Amino acid sequence: MAGQLVACPATASKPAVSNGLPDVSLPCLGGGPDIRLADLRGPLVLNVWAQWCGPCRAEAPYLAKLAKSGKVSMLGIDYDDPRPELAVKFATTEGLAYPHLKDLDKSIQRALKVGGPPLTVFVAKDGSIAYVHHGVLTSQHQLDQLVKDKLGVTP
């Protein structure tokens, strides 16, 4: 089942960045090594989701389309989800063809102020968090505009 998801790539160890992603390592949902969030640099769109989250399902097509553009790196975090097998099914069915991590213990909750999914984090080239969008993305235009405005990339 996990073979259907994009495997997580190995990431080079980097120093944590001020105002960057938390220094937390999460296991890969689709196979591959654990990923230390503080190692990541942008332009990156990181989406926190869960298969039981209706708004996450609503915004999934916009994230899938952005991923297909190849203009920014994409990473998903399956958050507080007791059914990883359903999460894999959701991500593959929705065409979320990028790596996904799992955070069963809500280890990113405090650092990213996660009230619940969905939440989308825009990470700049230097690794700093450029913007955090709480709640559902309501259109492709909204997501593309945030990528342009916050990361300087035109999808």
Score class of each variant (00 low, 15 high):
134 H>Y: 09
98 Y>Q: 11
2 A>I: 13
150 K>Q: 10
58 A>D: 14
148 K>N: 08
142 Q>W: 04
72 V>Y: 01
80 D>W: 12
38 A>Y: 09
120 T>Q: 07
38 A>R: 14
81 D>W: 00
37 L>F: 04
14 K>W: 09
39 D>H: 08
129 I>D: 00
53 C>N: 03
102 K>H: 07
38 A>G: 10
112 L>A: 04
114 V>P: 00
59 E>L: 10
37 L>D: 03
51 Q>P: 03
32 G>V: 10
38 A>N: 11
28 C>S: 15
58 A>T: 13
151 L>A: 05
34 D>R: 14
85 E>N: 14
13 S>A: 12
13 S>E: 09
53 C>Y: 04
34 D>S: 15
55 P>G: 05
45 V>C: 14
10 A>L: 10
111 A>T: 08
118 P>T: 14
19 N>E: 09
33 P>R: 13
23 D>G: 08
44 L>E: 07
139 S>P: 07
42 G>V: 04
17 V>M: 08
14 K>N: 13
83 R>S: 12
92 T>Q: 12
125 K>R: 15
126 D>L: 10
78 D>S: 15
155 P>S: 12
21 L>Q: 04
64 A>M: 07
30 G>K: 03
123 V>A: 05
82 P>M: 03
11 T>N: 06
73 S>W: 06
65 K>Q: 13
74 M>I: 15
60 A>S: 12
112 L>R: 02
74 M>N: 06
61 P>Q: 10
63 L>H: 03
134 H>F: 10
72 V>L: 15
78 D>Y: 02
26 L>V: 11
119 L>A: 14
17 V>G: 06
21 L>I: 11
5 L>E: 01
11 T>M: 07
117 P>Q: 07
81 D>Q: 12
45 V>M: 11
45 V>S: 07
10 A>T: 10
153 V>W: 01
110 R>T: 06
29 L>R: 07
48 V>P: 00
143 L>G: 00
140 Q>F: 06
44 L>T: 04
21 L>E: 01
143 L>P: 00
22 P>C: 14
109 Q>N: 11
38 A>E: 05
106 K>N: 05
